[in-house]
């Protein structure tokens, strides 16, 4: 899928994004997201802001730069970004083609992002570039499963899901390792499907 196709897909998805994800899923995940985001420190890059549903889970007073490939998502996120009690800006940008200088951020956060990035390992390598050596990558993601029959169900769902939204059978921890990060901790939230991943960029 090309970048323009990805942008178009998420521009289209922005119409129903809050309806599908704004209440139940956010309410369900909120305690886990708040716990993950509570470790925010220093200059932060937040990947794939979407409509800004995660922003209310951010602790106040931080310096956060958000990016998203979809201009329509960011249009919807604008009031939430403006309401953040700290310093937050957002730009339309593709993770594969970020124009930030090397080592620009202390931490990078993602929330249901690497189910959607077309080249996940390439995207994670791009994050590694903009992250300071030893900087933290903290992810809230859904992945594929190793549990039968859920792995079968997710593999069957994937061809349909990938056309309208995320891929549902990715092995994101393996992708994080393949991009050169060191994983410190993976915490399962729902089965082995919804999880947090805490990793660090190499020091050298």
């Amino acid at each position: 899928m090309t970048d323009s196709e990805t942008r178009e897909k998420w521009d289209n998805a922005s119409r129903l994004f809050d309806l599908m994800g704004g209440f139940g899923p956010e309410k369900r995940w909120r305690p886990y997201k708040e716990r993950l985001f509570s470790a925010m420190n220093g200059k932060i890059l937040f990947m794939a802001v979407g409509t800004g549903l995660d922003i209310s889970c951010f602790p106040p007073g931080h310096d956060i730069t958000g990016i998203d490939i979809s201009p329509k998502m960011l249009e919807k996120a604008a009031p939430r970004i403006a309401a953040y009690p700290g310093r937050m800006t957002a730009r339309v940008m593709d993770v594969h083609d970020m124009d930030f200088p090397d080592a620009a951020f202390d931490q990078v956060y993602t929330s249901c992002t690497f189910c959607s990035v077309p080249d996940p390992i390439g995207g994670l390598k791009a994050i590694r570039r903009v992250l300071k050596p030893g900087g933290g990558l903290k992810m809230f993601e859904h992945t594929g499963s190793r549990i039968f029959p859920f792995n079968l169900i997710l593999n069957l769902m994937n061809p349909l899901c990938r056309n309208v939204g995320p891929e549902v059978n990715r092995d994101t921890p393996a992708n994080v390792r393949a991009a050169g990060f060191t994983i410190g901790k993976v915490t399962n939230i729902f089965l082995d499907v919804v999880k947090t991943i805490e990793a660090a960029a190499p020091i050298t």
Partner: peptide, 14 residues
């Protein structure tokens, strides 16, 4: 799903 969650709902439902 909009009321109760995404993966926590769709996988058990399937």
């Amino acid at each position: 799903s909009p009321f109760f969650g995404i993966m926590e709902v769709i996988l058990p439902a399937a």
